[in-house]
């Protein structure tokens, strides 16, 4: 078993290495290679790695803590709440912007999760929670569009950034900062991996495994809000990475315990978003496709498949 896991770590690392090379060198004009890589491609790669890992980890943890295999930041409206919070923060210039990241986004994400748990967390079914999330997402996206149209003269153009995601608007500093945060949050969740395992039988059973339900939920909300808020404020909303990656990892490993799911989700999330971004850049060259559109094109059918399997009681 250990050898098998070790082999899978090597495979995942190999895929990530391939994704990195693809991001740096696919379609590269070698005459200006050092300038292009240093100024454009490396920060973009770093952000892709950080955001992909962050969204996958957030999706994994949300699915577990909400006992809902369809949960992820995008389908639950947490990402759109973060986008709305970030847009308001940027327009008001009221928030302390650290490394280009916006506390408004973290607050928006936290408010969305809080609302979701308050309204839909009291034992409602998986489907109704997702419906609630979709409604939350639509309301936040509409409010975002209204806010951007009224508060920002160039708002209408910026809406695309928030709704479909973009990894190209960042420098190395903020991307590296986000990556450090994601790794720290990943390490924190790894330390609490047994506490997450206790949620695998639903909220009612958590305390019988010696884990405090309210405390673990609060810590999770805080850390997931941090991951989603920071990711959205730097890269906009990128859908379905948080849905696909945890399912892929669970299926590939054939395991449900979080001690291994967490590191594999981080690696695969990073690799898949970086590959998606490289494809988004290469497919329509010289024009670029929004990376969120590429992930949604793959992710939406997977969501439908999982939804139908869930109705037959066959998740994962």
């Amino acid at each position: 078993m250990r050898n098998e896991i070790r082999k899978k770590y090597l495979i995942a690392a190999g895929v990530l290495a391939f994704a990195i090379l693809m991001s740096l060198f696919l379609g590269l004009d070698f005459k200006n290679a050092s300038l292009l890589i240093g100024e454009l491609r490396f920060p973009r790669l770093l952000l892709g790695v950080a955001v992909g890992a962050a969204l996958s980890l957030a999706g994994l943890v949300l699915q577990t803590v909400l006992s809902n295999p369809l949960a992820e930041p995008y389908t639950l409206g947490i990402a759109s709440g973060a986008a709305l919070g970030a847009a308001i923060g940027v327009s008001l210039k009221a928030s302390a912007v650290i490394f280009g990241m916006n506390p408004g986004a973290i607050a928006g994400a936290a408010l969305s999760i809080g609302l979701l748990l308050r309204v839909g967390g009291g034992g409602s079914g998986q489907e109704s929670m997702i419906l609630l999330g979709v409604m939350l997402s639509l309301v936040s996206a509409s409010m975002l569009a209204i806010w951007m149209s009224l508060a920002d003269p160039l708002g209408v153009q910026s809406i695309n950034f928030w709704l479909l995601g973009d990894l190209s608007r960042v420098t190395t500093g903020p991307a590296a900062f986000l990556l450090v945060v994601v790794l720290l949050v990943g390490a924190a969740f790894l330390m609490f991996s047994r506490h997450l395992d206790a949620f695998l039988f639903g909220g009612e059973m958590v305390e019988s495994f010696g884990v405090s339900l309210p405390r673990t939920r609060k810590i999770t909300i805080l850390l997931v809000s941090l991951l989603v808020g920071l990711s959205v404020s730097l890269a906009g909303m990128i859908g379905f990475v948080g849905l696909i990656v945890p399912h892929l990892v669970r299926r590939w490993l054939g395991l449900q315990r979080h001690f291994h799911l967490i590191p594999f989700s981080l690696i695969w999330g990073a690799a898949i978003l970086v590959i998606s971004d490289s494809l988004a850049r290469a497919i329509g060259s010289p024009h670029e496709l929004p990376v969120g559109a590429v992930t949604s094109l793959v992710g939406a059918p997977v969501f439908i498949l999982l939804f139908l399997r869930g109705r037959r009681g066959q998740f994962s």
């Binding site: 609490f192 695998l200 039988f201 639903g202 449900q256």
Partner: peptide, 30 residues
Amino acid sequence: LGSDFRSAFDLTVRDLFELGIESASGRFWP
């Protein structure tokens, strides 16, 4: 323990028993 037990995930009986022992031990690591 109540009477109605469900999981949305594909956990095995062995995983459940191991989780039970780890919970009783109070250790952080699995």
